[in-house]
Design a protein around this nucleic acid. Structure first.
Lengths: 345, 345
DNA sequence: GTGAAAGCGCTAACAT
DNA sequence: ATGTTAGCGCTTTCAC
């Protein structure tokens, strides 16, 4: 029965276990038992519950955490919550955390190493049970978190250094390979690589996979066709425009991330290039608009939700096991209409 | 100097204020002062800091929260983190929370009233300083949270009942009105309304605004052209297909949300309707793909980031003020290429 | 400037 | 089955 005055509220500070005990005429231990599942006689339990109801009592997780030395919270740090991959990741973590009865502290580092470290610090002070992170900052900072007794799982990035950090990876190597093979199979020999990507997308392994696969297939890489951009919209756009404008003779473009893929699509349209007649376009990261643009974009789907789920599982269930290298999650090549045979020269 | 054994770690439990005090040869009060900014002689501070560094000491937020009766955390509950509007909202809350030095507990309710209430409960037990929510569940549950002494701000929904919940709204009414006026100005008289929407998009006020504006403009509403779908992809698709297939003679389609807008675009393409030659399409919610599809979609942009930021500000700064009705945020009509004059019959 | 001690809300060991 | 008590890590009076 909260007293809700007219304006400026009473801010009645919440009832404590003591209040309930007094109201029910029992000891505080009994109240505790009622709420944490000890054995209490039915009659007493009834009285306690009634009193608790009257007082609007909610056990304080703060008190409990202090006693138990464990908060039941996990930290999640992503580069950018509005990135579709990150959003999927978050959803996965949330879903898994729920099954373990844990809650999630979220923050975004936006590629700022200092901020990332500060967030981690704060989460450690909050005594989270572990941290899941898509790290973009200083690897040393993360090893030191582990050194301080923390548990961390790195998603979509491998942290150089001692293998004290659990890791969940997405098999971009295989994804890019499949895509390149598909393109080459279509007849393409001059394939451009637009590097750099969305947050959550280290371009290094993708470029390496691009080069390796081409080499394996006996196709030469034209360095003029390998371009890099920073993971911002305008940089991506500039890079794509630079490549497509000079018409270096690419018959296909592989965009290493959805941001740069978006740029490629936009630039192609602006240049009145028909897709895939004039140029084929494909990208890594199967975001929702891939199906919406015209023609729909062929893309390598990356399982962000699974990655988040597995990372959380790793943290909460498989800690001891975890020795045994990174978890590697498969990608899927989603073929749509944006790639076709190259135009006959 | 954390002892990192070979496998299965020591799990050295973190140093406490006592450990530091002992190591530095001072009282715990002094250590506390060093870390919470009390007055301490430079020499002592030095010693304490050194000891703390050795022990890898981090003040426990749990201990502090218990003492201070305030955790510095705020709860955020959205329908679905992967929805672009929700993602923007989250980003806004995160940004504002940072400036106040607060952290954020996130969870998703997925339209499940029971889950929403359970999440709120848990957050209250965590003793968050307040909760920001895009409520889809039982309004009574939220009023009772307030009754229990909690602070809640509702975003993008108005909760019926006593005005004890702070509110941040987006002016969809004006947004839809602008869009309808634009369409009518183009010459359209038979405008279809595809209702239901993404999470974070109550369709009611949009439909009302649609009808009102049309009435004001002296244009009759054909009930056959007003269709509703549930906020899932297939339901949206079915609704759009139903409408467009029977060719009820709509010259323009107003999709009330991005999910149903997506469906409209897809269906139009499938039916080989040219946009905007055969049919104009516009939607509420300016998601990133609007610019990517062909032609780019005219849309009403909804300021999710701002909404989140303002909600957080309201919670953290303006509590007392807050009397004075909901905060209302403006939308913006973003005109692209998907709408044109109706085809001459 | 610094230390001793109380107490925040809770759980668990121990006593009854 | 239930009550008493200690103590989790911290801040903050109150003495000195």
């Amino acid at each position: 029965m909260g007293d809700r005055g007219g304006s400026g509220r009473p801010a009645a500070r919440p009832a404590t276990i003591k209040d309930v005990a007094a109201a029910a005429g029992v000891g505080i231990a009994t109240v505790s038992r009622v709420f944490s599942g000890g054995s209490v006689s039915a009659a007493t339990r009834e009285r306690v519950l009634a009193a608790a109801g009257d007082l609007d009592y909610r056990p304080s997780a703060v008190g409990r955490s202090l006693k138990l030395q464990r908060t039941g919270g996990i930290g999640l740090i992503v580069p950018d919550v509005t990135d579709p991959f990150c959003a999927d990741l978050i959803a996965g973590v949330l879903e898994c955390a729920r099954t373990f009865g844990e809650h999630v502290l979220l923050d975004a580092a936006h590629g700022d190493a200092g901020r990332e470290a500060a967030i981690a610090d704060r989460m450690m002070e909050q005594r989270v049970d572990g941290i899941i992170v898509v790290p973009e900052g200083d690897p040393a900072a993360w090893h030191s978190v582990v050194g301080a007794g923390g548990w961390v799982v790195s998603v979509d990035r491998v942290l150089p250094g001692p293998p004290d950090v659990l890791t969940v990876l997405i098999d971009d190597r295989a994804g890019v390979r499949a895509l390149v093979e598909y393109l080459v199979g279509l007849g393409h020999r001059r394939i451009a690589f637009l590097g750099a990507a969305s947050p959550g997308a280290p371009t290094g392994v993708r470029e390496a996979a691009f080069r390796d696969t081409l080499a394996q297939l006996g196709v030469a890489v034209d360095e003029d066709l390998v371009v890099a951009a920073r993971p911002e919209r305008d940089s991506a756009y500039a890079a794509a425009a630079g490549l497509l404008q000079r018409r270096a003779g690419a018959s296909a473009v592989l965009a290493a991330g959805h941001l740069i893929g978006e740029a490629a699509v936009l630039v192609a349209r602006e240049l009145d290039l028909r897709v895939p007649a004039d140029v084929s376009i494909a990208m890594v990261g199967d975001v929702s608009w891939a199906e919406l643009c015209d023609p729909p974009l062929t893309a390598v789907a990356r399982p962000g939700h699974d990655a988040g789920y597995r990372a959380c599982e790793l943290l909460l269930r498989d800690r001891t096991r975890a020795r045994g290298g990174p978890v590697l999650l498969p990608t899927e090549l989603v073929i749509r209409g944006s790639c076709g045979p190259p135009r006959r020269a």
